[in-house]
Amino acid sequence: MSTTIKKLGKPVQNEFELFTKEFTSALQSDISLIKEISQYILNQKSKRIRPLLVLLSAKLCGLPGENTIIAASLVEILHTATLIHDDIIDEALTRRGKPSVNAVWKNKVSVLIGDFLFSRSLTNMLRIRDFEALELLSRTSEALSSGEILQLEKSSNNGMDEENYFRMIWLKTASLFATSCKVGALTVGADQEKADVLYKFGKYLGLAFQVKDDLFDYTATEESIGKPIGRDLKSNLITLPLIHTLNKLSSAENRRIRNLIKIGLQPDDVKEINNLILESGGVEYTKQKLKEISEKACESLAGFHDSDIKQSLLGFIEFNQERIN
């Protein structure tokens, strides 16, 4: 891969070091079990994309300060909390190629650790002391949970269509990308127009990231992405490649496939559905949507003067297109 996270983060290298210290400190507790799990989380190989978006967006608009570093830590805490809860819901045993928190400490402890992180994010929000930033972060915290619930609801009642799919991935993924970009701008006193443009950029970038993630379920290997492939299907989660395929089937065949997913898929069922998706062009359709969304993200930053910081933000689009995990 020609575009690496390390290269994209170079313009904010010093700020990122401050973020790392802040994030590490934010996960600390005098309770030994929390300290143990926090250290486990810190040792995992995370891309830290959202805090980098905070730092780069801030530096694009001004000079990052203490609030910028706090905000960068805050969005990563929120992201980590949602990942822990996601893995419980999906019954996932691996995360980034390592055993997930719930695989090691089981569901009861994992739920509480996720709750602890959400609570810690609230504490950090108060440290920012900026009403607009607080309101944005609070709404985003709600959106993350709402998106997961919407996905479960629509998947269980056969209501997942393309419109609901994009609404769902906006809430559960793209909203935090958008907020990361905008809150970065707000922490340096950027004007509303710049903050809104960065929010739009983050929205499209986040949508593109989730669409790419959903493609992995049909195009990747377990070794490359660090988690089981076919997990969405086995968890009764209907994503864009399958939605496109279902739209091309007869009503009877559509119902048959949805019922198979609902009652629980056997290995032969997964193979059959994967073949249907490939034959119907579900993967190619999703790749085309990914291309369109990525172009919108790129266009969003057209009003900013060219700089190494702007190029790093745009580089995340290329990074997403190239990534294999």
Score class of each variant (00 low, 15 high):
58 A>E: 09
58 A>D: 00
58 A>I: 06
59 K>M: 01
59 K>H: 10
60 L>C: 11
61 C>G: 00
63 L>V: 13
64 P>G: 06
64 P>T: 09
65 G>F: 13
66 E>P: 02
66 E>A: 10
66 E>K: 15
67 N>K: 15
67 N>A: 00
68 T>F: 00
69 I>C: 02
70 I>C: 06
70 I>H: 07
71 A>H: 00
72 A>T: 10
73 S>H: 05
73 S>G: 15
74 L>H: 09
75 V>R: 06
76 E>H: 11
76 E>N: 11
77 I>N: 04
78 L>M: 15
81 A>M: 08
82 T>P: 05
82 T>D: 04
83 L>K: 03
84 I>A: 05
84 I>E: 02
85 H>A: 04
86 D>E: 10
87 D>F: 11
87 D>A: 05
88 I>P: 14
88 I>D: 13
88 I>V: 15
90 D>S: 04
90 D>A: 01
90 D>T: 05
91 E>C: 10
93 L>R: 12
93 L>N: 00
94 T>S: 02
95 R>P: 03
96 R>W: 08
96 R>G: 13
97 G>I: 06
98 K>M: 15
99 P>Y: 04
100 S>P: 04
101 V>H: 10
103 A>V: 06
104 V>R: 12
104 V>D: 02
105 W>V: 05
105 W>C: 07
107 N>Q: 00
108 K>T: 02
108 K>R: 12
109 V>I: 15
109 V>M: 07
110 S>F: 01
111 V>W: 06
112 L>P: 07
113 I>T: 06
116 F>I: 01
118 F>V: 10
119 S>C: 14
119 S>R: 00
120 R>C: 08
121 S>L: 09
121 S>G: 13
122 L>V: 10
122 L>D: 11
